[in-house]
Design a protein around this nucleic acid. Structure first.
Lengths: 168, 168
DNA sequence: TTGTCTGCAAACACTTTGCACTTTT
DNA sequence: AAAAGTGCAAAGTGTTTGCAGACAA
């Protein structure tokens, strides 16, 4: 149902901060800026890390009383942020993983199947390749997601050990 | 938890039919070839289409009495087939989509966000690119998944019309 | 004030599991 | 006969929704 496609691969309008972009988006939808939305947007946009809804919930629970939000509100707000174009969503092992990428260049990921770590990389060539392929199929590409799975250096080094990292 | 990585990107041991490969795999695990498993493997491997567990269940329900299987058995068997390396699994919009690709060359997909159609394509360049990137990160790539999303030709042509398609 | 938002509990969609019975080997 | 598999119903995940009270505009 999205009406306004805000796609311009490789670079987004960076005149606005993510917070401003979010407010703008909400205003055009007649939605309000509440304390909870504020808290969530701030938390997320000051980090650029990969996270899921549950982690965000837990993180916020650790903060001063007023800076928390319920699970439903978190899910609702994350969806709004995706619509607003300040958050990217991907599915990994059955749950949604988000990443704040407003203003960041297009990139993709290496996914370690041993420790679940995501490593970013970017490649212009990939986008070119993608566009070329799309064209031969008369397909209008709007975005893409490449996930290369395998084993990261750390996990290979620790092989045989039961140690395990918790970075996501 | 997969123990035996059967990776050899770009080409798999094609001396065996998928059915044979599956039997081989099951035998080495001390698992049995039951009527249900047979039915599922046959149905899936004679098609090379994209499907999910629910669709398979419904498809089998339409067949003669003896050729059916329950939902749990379908889920269990699909997982076994993935482990056996004769089926590929990907996540799309929150549910698992499978594709029989044993013996087929490596390929990726264009995903139409309007009609949910998956279009296949393959590109050697992509695999090379992937390997190059992995190497710079000391990452051991085992596989990859690229999904280019956008709008397919059919959907663009029909835009504005109330007609809709039913191809998946 | 008015209409939106929040949080709770309940509902959902998809997938997995415990268990008694059935089937393959 | 022994071991593994099936199907049912129930339990799990992760995510969404209905609704009454709370709150931003």
């Amino acid at each position: 149902m999205s009406v306004d496609a805000n796609f311009s691969l490789g670079r987004v309008n960076t005149a606005l901060t993510p917070q401003e972009r979010f407010e703008e988006f909400m205003q055009t939808r007649g939605k309000r800026i509440t304390r909870q939305r504020q808290v969530i947007v701030d938390h997320v946009t000051t980090r650029h890390e990969h996270f899921d809804a549950e982690q965000l919930l837990v993180d916020l629970k650790k903060t001063p009383a007023g800076a928390q939000a319920s699970r439903p509100t978190i899910y609702r707000t994350l969806n709004e942020m995706v619509e607003a174009g300040i958050l990217k969503k991907m599915e990994l092992d059955g749950r949604a993983v988000y990443e704040h990428d407003y203003g960041y260049p297009q990139h993709d990921h290496l996914y370690c199947t041993s420790c679940q770590k995501l490593i970013e990389f970017s490649s212009e060539e990939l986008t070119k390749l993608r566009n070329a392929v799309a064209e031969t199929h008369q397909f209008r590409a709007q975005g893409h997601r490449l996930i290369v799975s395998g084993i990261c250096f750390d996990c290979r080094s620790k092989r045989g050990t039961s140690r395990h990292q918790d970075r996501v």
